[in-house]
Computed example of a mutant assay.
Amino acid sequence: MARWTGEWLSDPRPGAEEPPRWRGERLGLPEEGGGSVARGGARLLALVLDLVAASLLTSLFIRPDLQDTATMQTYNLWSVAVWAVITVIPVSFFGFTLGMAAVGIRVARLDGAQMVGVPRAIVRGALTFVIIPAVIRNADGRSWLDRATGTVVIRTR
């Protein structure tokens, strides 16, 4: 019977499965280069670039005013909505956002399907918004949101 922690904690028993030599080995992914598991820094940079893009797009319609709390609340709500749209739609159909494309990473399904799909992209976006599931990773470099959606973030170059 599996422990409630699943593969997140190593199994101290003798004869337990060997830990992977590199992130993604158990998934059949290469150690380095295109197709290997993306590092956390690249994922974070892509998220920051997407947040900046959402803020800039929102600024085209709502002028931010740091002195006006009501305006900034409206601005922030619209920025989150814009971020959700520029994240969910591209990931659903293409597997990457503008920020992901800039840093050379994309989302891939483990079952080999070409498109991530709208339901998976919505779950990924919602869990990214919560932050904690996106930060905690297992030995394969997959976060909780990757495991929940059957995906992995890989390098494209």
Rank of each mutant, 00 (worst) to 15 (best):
I131D: 08
R157M: 06
D50L: 04
A81H: 00
N76D: 11
W144Y: 04
P30A: 01
V153D: 03
I132A: 13
L66E: 01
M1S: 13
G28V: 10
E32D: 13
W8K: 00
L44P: 07
V80M: 07
V82I: 12
R120L: 04
V52S: 02
R124D: 08
R63N: 09
E17G: 05
W4M: 10
A113Y: 06
R21A: 13
W144D: 00
T97D: 08
A126Q: 08
V153W: 03
A84P: 01
R13V: 08
R23N: 12
E7A: 05
V88W: 06
I62W: 06
Q73E: 11
M1Y: 05
V52P: 03
A102N: 09
G34S: 14
E25A: 11
G35D: 12
Q73G: 09
W78F: 13
G6W: 02
G150E: 05
T87V: 11
A126I: 15
A108E: 15
G35E: 09
A38V: 08
W22G: 04
L77E: 06
T71K: 03
T87S: 09
I132D: 05
I89F: 13
V91L: 07
S92M: 11
N76Q: 14
P20I: 02
I89N: 07
S92W: 11
R21T: 12
I105M: 05
G28H: 03
G24N: 08
R120P: 04
R43D: 02
V103H: 10
R23K: 14
T58S: 01
A53I: 07
R23T: 12
A70V: 08
T149H: 04
G28A: 08
P14I: 01
G99P: 12
G40Y: 07
V118D: 05
G41I: 03
L110Q: 10
E32G: 03
V91M: 11
R39M: 04
V48A: 09
A54D: 01
I89L: 15
G104V: 10
Q114T: 12
A102C: 12
E31A: 14
E18C: 00
T69G: 08
